[in-house]
Design a protein around this nucleic acid. Structure first.
Lengths: 220, 220
DNA sequence: TTATTTTTTTAGATTTACCTAAAAATAATA
DNA sequence: TATTATTTTTAGGTAAATCTAAAAAAATAA
C-alpha cells in the first residue's frame, strides 16, 4: 500500500507518460509543486518499491505495477468527479480539487459500490475515460481543436486542462461537452479560430483551442 | 486549518469529554493507538494553537474553538456514514473505518451539498445525532440497556460501540435501531439479561447490554 | 570542441508525528 | 506518613517528505 504522497507521484508520472515516454525530474517537480531535489528522493523510493524504472539523469518510466497503481488512482479520481457533478450538483470546474483528496480514500468496497451507484459511467465530467475495476478503458481517439482545418467539424468530447479558470471560460463561450462545432476561419495574424457553435460565430485563442478535444465527423 | 492528525486528536478528546470533564493523557493514547509520550507532544501543540486548555499532569479540556473543530469532524463522519448506508448499501458495521478517512476531506461545499443530498439527516446509522452546519444538535436522553429493571421497556435508539464485531452480533440477535424491547429477567449469576424482542426471548451479556442505548417508554 | 546553460543529483537540514528510556509528579497502599 | 505503583512528562532519536546550496552530468550554443 502506497502513501498519499507516493500515490500523487504515480498519478503525475502516469499523466506525463501520455505525452513523453520517459518522464523528466523537472516535469514532475513542476506538476507536483515541489523541488527537483525532492523528486529525485521520491523517485528512488518508488524505484526501490518497483513502481518505476529509473536511470540516473535519464528520467523514469512506470513499471506494470506502477501503471496499475496509477490507473487505480485515476479511476477513483474520475468516479468521484462524476459523483460530485451528477449527485451533488457541482459544476465541472469545481470538482478537481476535492477529487484530488477523495481519490486517496483507501477502500476497494467503497469505490466498487460508488461505481455501481453512479451506473458504471464510462467518462468523467471532462470527457476523460474511466478505467473499469480491471484498469481497462477505451483509448479514445481525440484530435485537438487547434489541429482542425477550415471546414472541419466535430463534437467536443474532452478537455486537456482542468483548471477552474479554463473551464469557466469554456462555459461562458458555450463550449461544453457534446456541443457540435465547425471551423469557419483561422486568423492569419494570431492563429485564433472562428468557430460555429449553436448557430453562433465565436472567436477562440490558440491557447484555448489547444486544450479542447474533438471527435471529428467532418471532411478530414 | 488542522492536520489530519490534529483532527483525530480533537475528535477523540471530544468523545472522551462526554464521560469525563478533563481528559487524561493515557485515555487519549489508548484511543488513538499511540504512546502517552506522543500524546503529550501533540497536546502541547494543540494548546499552543488554542484548541485545548492544558495543565501539566492534570489533563486537557477543549476550548470553544477546539470543540467547534471537533464537532465539525463528527458532523462529517456521521454524514458520510449515512451516505455509505443509505446510498451505497453498506451495512452499519461496515462504515466506521471508511468514514474515519472521509471525515478528513476538507471542503465546506462538499459537506453542505452532501448534507442536502442526504436530506439533512438528524442521526447516523448507529443512532448518533448529526450536528447541523452550525454545530447544533439535540442532546439525546438515552439510558443504557443495562440500567433498566425487570419490566422496563423501550426502543433501541443507539449504540455506544461501533466495532464491526459488536454490531454484527447485535444484527444476529435482531437488536437493531428502532426495535422495541422489554426486560423480562436479570440473571443473578452473571448479570446477563433476558429480553423480549420481536416476540422472542433472548439472553444478552452485561457487556452487550452496556453498549445498547434505549429511549424508554416503560415504567421507570 | 570548448564554453555555457540547463537539468539532475548529492549532502546536509528541517518539520511532523512518532518512538524508547528515564525522570518527575501524582495517586494509592501499607 | 512512608512506600509503592501509576501516570505523565522530558530528553533524545527515528522515518517520511520536504527544503537549500553546491556538485555533477547532460544538453545546447558559440
Amino acid at each position: 500500500m502506497q502513501s498519499f504522497t507516493e500515490e500523487n507521484y504515480l498519478k503525475i508520472i502516469y499523466h506525463l507518460s501520455e505525452s513523453n515516454n520517459t518522464v523528466q525530474t523537472n516535469a514532475i517537480a513542476e506538476q507536483i509543486q515541489t523541488k527537483p531535489a525532492s523528486v529525485t528522493d521520491m523517485i528512488k523510493k518508488l524505484a526501490d518499491k518497483g513502481f518505476v524504472d529509473y536511470i540516473k539523469y535519464q528520467g523514469v518510466t512506470l513499471t506494470d505495477r506502477g501503471r496499475n497503481a496509477a490507473i487505480d488512482i485515476v479511476r477513483k479520481h474520475r468516479l468521484w468527479e462524476v459523483f460530485l457533478v451528477d449527485k451533488l450538483n457541482f459544476k465541472w470546474d469545481e470538482v478537481h480539487e476535492v477529487a484530488e483528496e477523495l481519490e486517496h480514500i483507501k477502500s476497494e468496497a467503497l469505490i466498487e459500490r460508488l461505481d455501481e451507484f453512479l451506473g458504471f459511467p464510462k467518462s468523467d465530467p471532462h470527457g476523460d475515460p474511466i478505467p473499469d475495476k480491471n484498469g481497462r478503458f477505451a483509448k479514445t481517439q481525440f484530435i485537438k481543436l487547434i489541429d482542425l482545418k477550415i471546414g472541419d467539424g466535430g463534437t467536443i468530447t474532452g478537455v486537456s486542462q482542468h483548471s477552474s479558470a479554463f473551464l469557466k471560460h469554456l462555459e461562458k463561450l458555450g463550449l461544453t461537452l457534446g456541443k457540435q462545432i465547425q471551423i469557419t476561419d483561422v486568423t492569419d495574424f494570431d492563429g485564433s479560430m472562428e468557430i460555429l457553435v449553436a448557430n453562433k460565430q465565436i472567436n477562440i485563442s490558440r491557447e484555448v483551442a489547444k486544450h479542447i478535444l474533438i471527435s471529428t465527423n467532418g471532411k478530414n
